[in-house]
Write a protein that binds this DNA or RNA. Structure first.
Lengths: 231, 231
DNA sequence: CCTTTCAGTGAACAGTCGTGCACAGAGTAG
DNA sequence: CTACTCTGTGCACGACTGTTCACTGAAAGG
């Protein structure tokens, strides 16, 4: 008696459309459950139930839960990349860079709260395969930022390694900020404002260290004098 | 036929001693399982089995898994506090502060790998109660650091808020570093050295921004000129 | 010494889990 | 129109889960 209206109840659809629809229903169901639980504790049956689908239907889309998890990571980072494209597209007011970047981050975190929460949560916890995949993506993101940074004053003659150091520091700060925004009680705008305000200050502090960087490297006493280039 | 040698097989012990021993066996078992899995996906039976104890014995020590988790947090932060005490006890070579702090961090992460892994993993993921508890502890740690920082040059006349900004930035960097060290493949010392080296550079960069801080605050154009005090 | 306490046992419960299998029935191709 | 494809269904299975209960036997207390 298999009735097809478990996910859809609209006009007749092509087969591929209907299948994609169920797939998305499964992904969304998982994402929804992940608001309160961790991925590792999620069950195949649980997700199927939440999606309004029988457990065995799950296998038509994913061979295992881990596979669904990787699909979720794909989707999540797709939205994150969109955010970065947005950031690059903006005029970039030069000394408003920090404020603008923070604003973009906040906007996207709100627009794709579930995706960001998923990434933030599974970044350090749970299933090794997912953790690995997320770390790789973030690392890739950092090195993209590093090449972007190389076009700023003072930074144009930095070592690749030093640019990486700076980029990672900035990314880490952004990630921490995103995590705090996600966990902030919604409907308490002043708390979120404080978080954003602090993030901006942190980024500003980091940027302030940039002009002084080289001299400090030269001051480094007992360290092996390897990678510092001559002025 | 309840035999008592499931955990112990030594000389006769007092009742309290034996009970404490089993309690520790349960905590250690959980900690060991948490190397590969997340706390949320951990089962009472699983932990009891790993501890070499029958499931029902679990209830003699913890009413629920969440209670065991909170006990784990207690223990983990106890070792973390010991680390901080060590850090304060050292001579603090003044401009070797960064190198020394990093060294202490590395040493303790290795000595208490399981505790640090647990904290790192459950900090952002899984069971709300645990996440909450961990965040509170870290926040407390940050504000302690803030008051310590106030005794350094340049920092002695900073706002409380700005000190918090700086402290949080430093703590975040430390936490990220600890997470990376934990996940670094053991037996590859060069990878870990690279991580530590980057962490030191990041901290140095942050510190370099400190002397320039006030002026930048004054430069802040369209922002509301609230919390900056006159020089 | 005898009695009490209580950490750990073992069997049993209702429920959930992942997975295999046969089958329905709507979309698709000839 | 017919035959085929394939997504979703329904049922069954064994394994595992959290929790209950009455129990045992050694340490603790008088």
């Amino acid at each position: 008696m298999g009735h097809t209206d478990s996910v859809n109840s609209e006009t007749p659809l092509t087969r591929a459309e209907q299948k994609e629809r169920t797939r998305i229903a499964l992904l969304d169901a998982a994402l929804r459950l992940l608001e309160r639980r961790s991925f590792g504790s999620l069950g195949l049956r649980e997700v199927a139930r939440e999606a309004g689908v029988v457990p065995t239907a799950f296998y038509r889309h994913f061979a295992t839960m881990e596979e669904l998890g990787l699909a979720l990571i794909d989707d999540s980072f797709r939205t994150l990349r969109r955010m970065i494209r947005d950031a690059r597209a903006e005029p970039l007011g030069y000394d408003h860079v920090i404020r603008q970047s923070a604003e973009i981050l906040v906007r996207h975190v709100h627009a794709h709260r579930l995706h960001f929460r998923f990434i933030a949560r599974e970044r350090s916890s749970g299933v090794p395969a997912l953790r690995q995949a997320i770390r790789t993506e973030i690392r890739l993101f950092s090195s993209e930022l590093a090449t972007d940074l190389a076009r700023f004053p003072f930074l144009d003659r930095w070592t690749t390694e030093d640019l990486g150091v700076l980029a990672t520091l900035i990314v880490n700060t952004m990630v921490s900020t995103a995590e705090e925004i996600i966990d902030a009680p919604s409907g308490r705008p002043e708390i979120e404002q404080a978080i954003v305000r602090r993030a901006e200050k942190q980024l500003r502090l980091i940027v302030l260290g940039v002009p002084a960087w080289r001299s400090a490297e030269a001051r480094s006493d007992t360290a092996e004098p390897s990678e510092n280039q001559p002025a």
